[in-house]
Computed example of a mutant assay.
Amino acid sequence: MYDSAGLQVLSREECLELLDTAAVGRLVYTDKALPVVHPVVFVLDGECVVLRVPHGSATLASRDTIVAFQIDDIAPDLSRGWSVMAVGHVTEVEEASRLARLQQLPLASRGYGRGDHYLVVDLEVLTGRRIP
């Protein structure tokens, strides 16, 4: 299936496969009524995106809210590429057993020894497009 711009519409399964190929994405949220786009390291865990953010990071302003999450790989000449965007609730993981499991995931830290927070984005809406 193709959209009105002639881009191939990706299935949820294809979007999940592409999410599993990247390590850095963009978290989009509002802070003081203004839009913010923040690069974040992430890993796909089932149908959730897990983010590991440094203590005091601005992304913590997005806890328990609806956010967007986006990744892409597009050639500079637009000859090939794809983009995946998700929308869902983000929550900070504080439950000890779940946190211990997430800490075992292959997720790099950008922190500087002050401790990290683990955020989970439930992928409630997941869409993707590919340049044919």
Rank of each mutant, 00 (worst) to 15 (best):
M85C: 12
S4R: 15
R80A: 15
E47M: 02
V67S: 05
Y29N: 05
T30Y: 12
P106N: 11
I66T: 15
L78I: 01
V84K: 03
D122K: 12
D73N: 11
A75F: 03
A108N: 00
V41C: 12
D64V: 03
R110T: 00
D64C: 02
R12P: 04
D77A: 08
G88T: 04
T59I: 04
A23Y: 14
E17W: 10
P106W: 11
L34H: 09
R12Q: 12
A58W: 07
A23C: 04
A33Y: 11
C48L: 03
E94H: 13
E14T: 01
I74H: 03
K32S: 15
C48R: 15
A100S: 12
L123D: 01
V121L: 12
D73T: 00
C48T: 13
H38D: 02
T65V: 01
V84S: 04
D72A: 09
A108M: 12
V125M: 03
V24P: 12
D45L: 02
L102D: 07
T127S: 10
T91Y: 15
T59G: 00
A23N: 12
V36S: 13
V41Y: 06
L60E: 07
A96M: 05
E92I: 03
L44G: 07
I131N: 06
G128Y: 03
A61T: 11
V84G: 07
G25F: 08
L34S: 05
L60P: 09
G128A: 05
S62T: 03
P35W: 05
Q103H: 11
V40Q: 03
Y29H: 10
Y29I: 13
M85A: 14
V37A: 14
D116N: 15
V9C: 13
L107A: 08
G81N: 06
T127H: 04
L19F: 10
M1E: 15
A86N: 02
E92G: 05
E13Y: 00
E17I: 00
I74C: 01
H89C: 13
R130W: 11
S4N: 13
G6H: 06
S57D: 12
V87L: 12
A61Y: 01
S97D: 14
L51S: 06
V9M: 14
V28H: 10
G6A: 04
P54L: 04
L60A: 02
G88M: 03
E124F: 11
I71P: 00
Y118C: 02
S11R: 09
L78Y: 14
T91A: 13
P54Y: 04
Y118T: 01
L107V: 06
T30D: 00
V120I: 06
E95V: 07
L10K: 02
D122S: 14
R110Q: 13
T21A: 01
M1R: 14
L51W: 07
V28I: 15
G46N: 01
G81C: 07
Y112K: 07
D20W: 01
E94M: 13
Q104A: 13
P54S: 10
L105Q: 09
T65I: 00
E17C: 03
Q8P: 00
L19W: 02
A75S: 10
V125F: 03
D72P: 09
S83L: 08
D116G: 08
L18I: 00
H117I: 06
D122G: 05
V125C: 00
V40H: 04
V67P: 04
G115I: 11
F42G: 11
L27S: 02
